[in-house]
C-alpha cells in the first residue's frame, strides 16, 4: 500500500520533495494508526430485504448514492448496487423485493480495524463503498475512499497544529517570561572515552536551538562548535567534563570545563593540524588537530584557559544578529491556527 501511494504521487508529474515524502510517510503511518470508525460515515441509508426495487431506486436517486446495505433486524444481510437495480429494471421487475436482486455475499470491514484494511479491501474487490460492522456484525456505518482521504487530511492538520503550537510556545519562551536577564541553561556531563555516545549532547543542543526558533544556519554553527568541544572532552580529559550552553535572547554562551590533564601550550593547540590525540580518536576521524580551528570559525569569540596539570575551560560565544534574536517579536512567525 505504501508503494501505491508513492507511485500515484510520482505519476502526477511533480517530483516528490522532502516535504511530500514526510507527508507520505505520515499518511502511511496514519493508515495504520487511524481506525475505520474514526473516518467512516455514520449516517447510513439502508433498505430492508422486503422493500421493493422501486423503493431502492428512489433511495439511491434521492440520496445520490450508488448502493445501499440491506439490513434485517439490525443485521447486515446484503448489499444492493445500481448494477443490481439495473438488472431488475431490464426485467421490468420493479415490484419485486430487494431480497431477490441483492448480493447476499457481503464484503464488509470491521469498525475497529485500521484504515489500511479498508484500503486493501477497496484495491482487492474494486468496490467503491464498504459497509462497516461492529463486533456483533451489526451495521454501524459506511466507508468510501473519500471518507479515508478526509479522515487522513483532518488527522494531518491536527498533527500540524499540535507541532505548531508546541513550537510557538517554545519560541515565545523568552517573550513570555519577564526578568532583567532571562537565560536557558542546558548542562551535560560528558564521560571520557565514551565514543559511542559522543555527540549526543550536541545533538540535543542543536535540536533545542531549532525548537527555540533558531535558523538552520545558527543551529548548525552551534552544533558544530559544541560537537567539537564535546569530542575534545571525550578524547582528551582524564575524568570527562561538563558541557554547558546558556541561551539568552541576544547571545549563546557555550562552555566546557574539565579537571585535566590541561593544555601545556595553548597557542600551539590553536595551530591547525596540531594534535595530541591518541590513535583511538584518530581512528574515529577525530584528532586531526582541526577541532579548535573549527570552533573558532563557528563562533564570534573563543577563549581557552588552561595549563599543564590544570583543568581546561573553553568558552565560546555567538552574538545573535538582530533578526536572529530569540525575543525579536518581528522575527517570529505566528502559527497558522
Amino acid at each position: 500500500m505504501s508503494s501505491t501511494l508513492q507511485e500515484t504521487q510520482g505519476r502526477k508529474g511533480r517530483p516528490i520533495t522532502d516535504n511530500d515524502a514526510q507527508d507520505i510517510t505520515r499518511i502511511e503511518e496514519l493508515s495504520y494508526d487511524l481506525r475505520i470508525f474514526e473516518v467512516m460515515s455514520r449516517e447510513v441509508f439502508t433498505l430492508a430485504p422486503n422493500q421493493t426495487i422501486r423503493d431502492g431506486l428512489e433511495l439511491l436517486r434521492i440520496k445520490r448514492i450508488s448502493g445501499a446495505p440491506v439490513v434485517e433486524n439490525g443485521d447486515l444481510v446484503g448489499v444492493i448496487s445500481t448494477e443490481d437495480l439495473m438488472r431488475a429494471l431490464t426485467q421490468n421487475d420493479l415490484k419485486s423485493p430487494i431480497r431477490t436482486y441483492m448480493s447476499a455475499n457481503v464484503i464488509s470491514v470491521k469498525s475497529y480495524e485500521p484504515v489500511v484494511k479498508a484500503l486493501e479491501t477497496f484495491a482487492r474487490t474494486n468496490v467503491g463503498r464498504l459497509p462497516v460492522t461492529n463486533e456483533h456484525d451489526q451495521l454501524v456505518g459506511m466507508i468510501t475512499k473519500g471518507d479515508i482521504t478526509r479522515g487522513v487530511l483532518v488527522a494531518i492538520r491536527k498533527d500540524y497544529q499540535e507541532e505548531e503550537i508546541r513550537r510557538y510556545r517554545v519560541r515565545h519562551l523568552f517573550e513570555d517570561i519577564t526578568s532583567d536577564r532571562t537565560s536557558l541553561i542546558l548542562r551535560y556531563h560528558i564521560k571520557p572515552r565514551d565514543f559511542i555516545n559522543g555527540g549526543q549532547a550536541s545533538s540535543h543542543i542543536k535540536r533545542a536551538m531549532l525548537r527555540l526558533g533558531a535558523s538552520a544556519q545558527l543551529a548548525r554553527q552551534c552544533g558544530i562548535a559544541v560537537y567539537e568541544a564535546e569530542m575534545n572532552l571525550i578524547i582528551h580529559t582524564t575524568n570527562g567534563g561538563i558541557l554547558r550552553v546558556q541561551i539568552e535572547p541576544h547571545r549563546i554562551l557555550m562552555q566546557t570545563t574539565d579537571d585535566g590533564p590541561g593544555i601545556p601550550d595553548v597557542n600551539k593547540a590553536l595551530q591547525p593540524g596540531w594534535s595530541t590525540a591518541p590513535q583511538e580518536a584518530r581512528n574515529m576521524g577525530f584528532g586531526a588537530g582541526m577541532g579548535l580551528v573549527n570552533i573558532k570559525s563557528c563562533v564570534d569569540k573563543m577563549e581557552i584557559f588552561s595549563g599543564a596539570g590544570k583543568g581546561t575551560r573553553l568558552m565560546m560565544e555567538i552574538h545573535l544578529r538582530p533578526e536572529e534574536k530569540f525575543s525579536a517579536a518581528e522575527g517570529t512567525e505566528e502559527p497558522g491556527i
Binding site: F195, I196, G198, G199, Q200, S202, S203, K206, R220, G223, I224, Y227, M231, N283, M284, G285, F286
Partner: peptide
Amino acid sequence: LCNLQVVRTAEMA
C-alpha cells in the same frame, strides 16, 4: 570511515 561519529557529524553539519 564507518562509525557512529560519521552519522553525528552529518547530523551536525
